[in-house]
Design a protein around this nucleic acid. Sequence first.
DNA 1: GCAATCGATTGATATTCGTCAATTGGATGG
DNA 2: CCATCCAATTGACGAATATCAATCGATTGC
Lengths: 230, 230
Amino acid sequence: MRIGEKPEIARLPLFRDMDDAMRERVLSGSFLQVFPPQLTLFELGQNADFLHVLVDGLVELYVTGAGRDTTMKIVEPVTSFILAAVMTDLPYLMSARTLTSSRVLLVPAALMREVIHKDTALMQATMHELALAYRDMVRALTDMKQRQSAERLANHLLEYSAQRGNLWEFDLSGEKRLLASLLGMTPENLSRAFGTLKAHGVKVSGARVRVEDRAALTAFAHPNPVPADR
Amino acid sequence: MRIGEKPEIARLPLFRDMDDAMRERVLSGSFLQVFPPQLTLFELGQNADFLHVLVDGLVELYVTGAGRDTTMKIVEPVTSFILAAVMTDLPYLMSARTLTSSRVLLVPAALMREVIHKDTALMQATMHELALAYRDMVRALTDMKQRQSAERLANHLLEYSAQRGNLWEFDLSGEKRLLASLLGMTPENLSRAFGTLKAHGVKVSGARVRVEDRAALTAFAHPNPVPADR
DNA sequence: GCAATCGATTGATATTCGTCAATTGGATGG
DNA sequence: CCATCCAATTGACGAATATCAATCGATTGC
């Protein structure tokens, strides 16, 4: 990989605390690649050959099969993804594609597994990332099981807003049908969910969302009592 | 803890490969306790004070709030649970209660976090468990998002059967309303789901289930292309 | 043996959500 | 500027699921 990128990547939580020589070993065996939008990075069922780290851009993790496709997670920089498949040497459970032009660091899985045994800091960081990813999935599953569609949207808006410093007005990032799939509903239903949220302090025009009455929206959302981890 | 239990616990995947002295240190600081049925072990939102390892019995992980309660996982022996909360020192995302009389090993979270930094084998085992737990959650979420209720039941029966050596006749373990909650539907709907599975090779009377036509059931279930990890 | 209890089942109905079709509206390109 | 395209929206309808109520059936306790 090119030299210019290294400091940026060395600062990632995953690699930050590693032994310098070990990090050098990992990074020199890895590839930083730029992918165009809408490119499939890997598909579910394949062997986990590379750990992926999204450095720049936007990536969608999704699942196909059983009739319908559904997006599981939107990966924002800077985050590693599919750590679990790499560490266990098991096939991917999800497919991944770029949404925008993206820079991705590809770390050969075998190299990763080799170095992790020798570097405690890397192993610890990996463990931590996995634990957070697990908790993220627990949240998503409870969300899907105990809330109906408009409540899921309400929660999403509250969390999205909280992520960017409790901004009360913001733009949705991707297309709305992507958001619909992430929230486990059809695009039509997402439109209607926005409609019902009008009565609970939310105004929408296009991609722009304004939360005019946070208290009302929160009351409607039945938010999770345990705040998000990150 | 009592001496007689140690060999059994030392054989667990989580502790198996540890340094003997370290393991001794962990186990001597832990408590093996017997709990009666229907006892709450901890509740979501609490600090993760103990790593729990179910040695014997049956434990339910569930989430309350947002209107309805839902069971997230039935823990069977011998498995650790809530590793993620312990390792990250974050509040529990789920509550736990015993379903039957259960023996549980309680490892103080602080002790666990201390020892894990010194024992690579323990850390590696923890990482592996977390990765598998994550993948389990990914499966559960895709199941909920892309399959409807009768298909979820069909899949559950197939996996349940596969777990015990492709037995084609077996008894459901707990009460049916528990199964319903695990599968994300009401008890009434579970009854109806069993009804629709009659046409796809499944006979039910009480807790006894017979899969008479595995091919038909599989065709109906749209099973996951990636086989289960364990 | 019999009543009481409780989970499971069944039926009727309401709600939520998905599907299909038509329309709108903003962006793009000539 | 206008035509085209495509995502988003809206409406009508149907399917899936939840809810409410009644009944069944097995187990428990007397």
